[in-house]
Structure formats: structure tokens, C-alpha cells
Design a protein around this nucleic acid. Structure first.
Length: 187
DNA sequence: CGAACGATTAGCT
DNA sequence: GCTAATCGTTCGA
């Protein structure tokens, strides 16, 4: 029995949501797979875009939960977050890696490579493989083009420090499926 | 208005 | 392991 996640399912804090999302299936226009790596960000978190309050870029993080927050990374990549916690809080979960399951040929085309392990192993790669664009910023995750299906089976989850940040680099707010070959890095 | 800086990746050593 | 690529956001003058 599949359960499609609803905005109500994103009202918890970002750490709980990040944990819940491991093993969930994410599809964008039918293309995607199983989420194997996430990171939590929060308003009181110096490494978060929402630290310091709302700005033009991060406004989606301060909107209602269960929406997408899409931002441009290093002027090159589009990265996808799920907004969570109560409206106005500025919390979100970064989708860092996916195990490709559906539309693999489409992802290969978009990424310009064949190796399935590298199609979605990293936030920028996920954005490119799933065709994430800035106009998806703020869109509901329970409506087209998105589909998020809750985890159906237990998985072994590991936690560790987040990647690529300089502030609050010590807290273990990165989560992943233990020993998955599709992680952006091993834990 | 100018300048520094990324929640990254690919490619080369 | 190291670094260039590349540009929007943010912050200080």
C-alpha cells in the first residue's frame, strides 16, 4: 500500500523529516527513485540559508511546509529542498542523493553519462537528473510534477556531519542509507 | 555599486 | 588530492 506524502507530513522539525525521507521515493514527471541521502537545515542553524531571516532567495523556506525550495548552487547547479516545520520557520531538507529507479534513460540523457551510480549522487546531480528548474521553487510536493511516496520498508540509516559547509560543520545532520552505492560520499 | 562567497561538480595530476 | 568553472545572492561602502 503506497502512501503519498501530504504537506501535513512535513510539519515536523527538519531533522525528523530528513530521517523520514530516507527510503522514500521521489519522482519529478515520473523520473526519479529512492532517496538515499538527505541533510537537515534549520532557522537557528548558521549553515542554513534561512539563518538571518527571510530574503528574496530563501522565501520558500519561510512559506508553508511540503513545498519545494530550489536554489542555484555555485552559479551552476539547481538543488532541491523540501520545506518543513511550521510556516514561517525557515527549515528544510536538502535532497542529496537518489537511487535511480524510474526514467533512467531520461536521466542518462540529461546527465550525459551512463553510470547509474553517478546519475543522482550529489545535490547538483539530483537537480540535473530530475530536471529541477527554478520555476519549481515554492511548488507543492503532493502535486504535479512532484510525487513523494513514503518509505515502505525498514532501512538501516546512518548519520554524519553535513558536507560542503564551513559553519556548524560538526553536527551530524546528514542522513543516509547505510552502505548504499548511490550516496554522494560514504559515511 | 562593487566584491566576495558559496548546502558543487568534473576533470586533471 | 586540487582547482577552474560560473553567476546569483548578500553585504559593506
Amino acid at each position: 500500500m503506497q502512501k503519498t506524502l501530504h504537506p501535513d507530513d512535513f510539519e515536523d522539525d527538519s531533522h525528523s523529516v530528513a530521517l523520514q525521507l530516507i527510503g522514500a521515493v521521489l519522482l519529478v514527471d515520473g523520473v526519479g527513485g529512492r532517496i538515499v541521502e538527505t541533510e537537515a537545515y534549520d532557522r537557528e542553524d548558521p549553515a542554513s540559508h534561512s539563518f538571518g531571516g527571510p530574503t528574496l532567495r530563501n522565501q520558500a523556506m519561510f512559506g508553508p511546509p511540503g513545498r519545494a525550495y530550489v536554489y542555484r548552487s555555485y552559479g551552476i547547479h539547481w538543488c532541491l529542498n523540501f520545506v518543513c516545520r511550521e510556516q514561517g520557520h525557515g527549515a528544510g531538507v536538502l535532497i542529496r542523493a537518489i537511487e535511480p529507479l524510474h526514467g533512467i534513460d531520461v536521466m542518462r540523457e540529461r546527465r550525459g553519462m551512463d553510470d547509474v551510480r553517478l546519475l543522482c549522487a550529489g545535490p547538483g546531480r539530483v537537480g540535473q537528473a530530475l530536471g529541477i528548474t527554478h520555476d519549481m521553487n515554492g511548488m507543492r510536493l503532493d502535486r504535479k510534477p512532484f510525487k513523494v511516496v513514503a518509505r515502505e520498508h525498514d532501512v538501516a540509516i546512518v548519520a554524519g556531519p553535513r558536507i560542503g559547509i564551513s559553519k556548524a560543520a560538526d553536527v551530524p545532520w546528514r542522513f543516509g542509507v547505510r552502505d548504499s552505492p548511490f550516496l554522494s560520499r560514504r559515511f
